[in-house]
Design a protein around this nucleic acid. Structure first.
Lengths: 192, 192, 192, 192
DNA sequence: GAGTAATCGAGACGGTACGTCCCGTCTTGTT
DNA sequence: AACAAGACGGGACGTACCGTCTCGATTACTC
């Protein structure tokens, strides 16, 4: 994400900037996030920010990755439904946390008008998690828990898209109940 | 959406503003849309815009409704899958049209930091279409094409959410193929 | 000062406008005087103002004339110095009254960038008073109280200009003492 | 006159702003002078103006001081009347120059509704010149050219006020003849 | 006494300028 | 050479008034 070059970079400034961005995003919502505000809060010159990040969304992205790297794993207990439920519930928890929800919504909103952000979001956040899920589904398919003709990437979308749908469209709040309903319908199907 | 009051309102100005907003949104993307730009293009004072709309998103919303009110119907040929496919394909067409996609993404992005917009999007765009879909599904459920215990609103989400997911997350392009996959998985289920 | 024509004019509106102008000039200083403000305070449409007056200064001018028409007289007791003192003291009183001072300063300020106002101020306020003074001085000259070679219009300026000087330049407050000093110096001269 | 602080200030911008203000004041009269216009002409952001000056009058004031600092001297040839005439003629020349007259009138007009401007005008323009004149008159009084009981500050007003009177009231044009008349009347007095 | 025309109140309209907030770049020491 | 600080040119913000322009709803003169 950096352009100039060296490792002469001040770790102190980097940390202060990421922290300031997270704090201000909570206080003012993503839309009220300002380069100038971050610089002031972090006690940093604006130039220092522009030197290392191309946009405020990029800062937030990096800040978020630092926070949530731990979530990167997918349980495999042998019970597919339980494993999916466990993982999806973690996502619900994140989307339900006001702070995390604000970051996520802000970042996805920014992605709509900045292809770089869009790309970064997919690559560094979505893709790794989707891949883990596909791995689990592949193993389930081998075990015969999923029909052979099921398109697994599409199935991942079917499972997670409704969570994003509620997060972004604000039709109804994301909730844990939703997870069970999604699992029921997706596994058993709706047809008679 | 209006605050001051009467019907002394100039239809000429209203039209010019909505048209200008649509045009500029195509040319500059939603992020580059400007109250000042709209005013200049429409040949209108800025105050006239602020008098009737609280935000640029509100303008776009009204402009969009004028354009797409025709889409409000849901076929019922007796063939559930065909009907769903037909309707979902229309959504894919809209999301695939660069202009319409730009409006939609911009509006949803704006909704992330403005509850009024969020509410207006749901009420005036999402809800009416979802309701029509639920009607169709209800009738299908009566006909025995859908299991009785299926939560229909959740099923609507299952069908449409993946389209929004790809539109907003930019993982893969929305496509007509997707519709068939969604229908397959949703109707038959993924379980063995 | 009126342009359209008839005497169909509403006396009620005329009065309300003049009163509103005077009131607002006191409250907000001349610079803060607004056509829109006058209209609202007077309970009058803006058009009604523009129909009868070309500028806010014109309104104020008319309002002032209605207030101070009484002052138009110049005493002639035979005692020149006493008569001048009496008249000049009246001017000091006016310039000392905060309300009247505000009007006067505002009007003269407006005259600096509007020749119509400048002309109206001279014609309807300054000139009549200067003429009366010249009359008194002429009679004094005949009586031998003023040297024959004295340019009377210039003498009027010598007497009154210092009052305007302090009013407009804000070097020192206008005061009654000033009158005596002016009279002393003007009548006796400063030379040894 | 400046608020933010340092000497990090751009001399280039300062100069461009002062020049632009003078130019525009000539072209559009003081009333048509605009912060936005100055910024555009000077090729400068508006903020840069607001950072260093509180009002357009303040800009003009500074611009004028840069231009006329040379006039600050008072001749002393021993001939009081000649010295006064020489100095007053310089003022007449300034008031007769359309550009300078425009600045002066605009500034004094602005002073009527802005105490800061009023104060700055007195302090930085009027006062220094009055003081020089008083010095000359004091020396004349010692020489016996002026009576001992004459109030010198009042005499200064008597000499100069008529020039300002004509400048601001627009009764008659300021002229060199006026200087002689003023000197005659002021030195010899008007009384018989 | 009914018809008609102009004035009235109200306030929307196309505009211009306001003074503020940020943007992203640039400049000036400091570490 | 990266840093904190912040001035710079610029663009958009949302507001306040400008002077013009409809709108009905009173008037008050004409027929």
């Amino acid at each position: 994400m950096a352009t100039p070059n060296p490792d002469r970079r001040s770790e102190r400034a980097r940390h202060a900037i990421l922290e300031a961005a997270l704090e201000l995003c909570q206080e003012h919502t993503y839309g009220g996030l300002t380069m100038e505000g971050i610089a002031k809060r972090a006690g940093v010159g604006k130039q220092t920010i522009y030197r290392w990040w191309p946009s405020k969304a990029a800062i937030l992205l990096e800040a978020l990755q630092g926070r949530s790297s731990n979530t990167l794993n997918f349980p495999d207990t042998g019970d597919l439904r339980a494993d999916l439920r466990s993982q999806m519930t973690q996502v619900v928890a994140a989307f339900t946390d006001p702070m995390f929800a604000a970051y996520s919504k802000g970042l996805i909103a920014a992605a709509q008008s900045d292809p770089d952000i869009a790309n970064a979001v997919v690559t560094s956040i979505i893709k790794p998690r989707v891949d883990l899920c596909i791995d689990r589904l592949t193993s389930a398919q081998k075990d015969g828990d999923i029909r052979d003709d099921v398109d697994l990437p599409a199935m991942v979308e079917l499972l997670y898209a409704p969570l994003y749908y509620r997060l972004l469209l604000h039709t109804r709040p994301v909730s844990e109940d939703q997870v069970d309903t999604i699992l029921d319908l997706t596994i058993a199907g709706c047809g008679a």
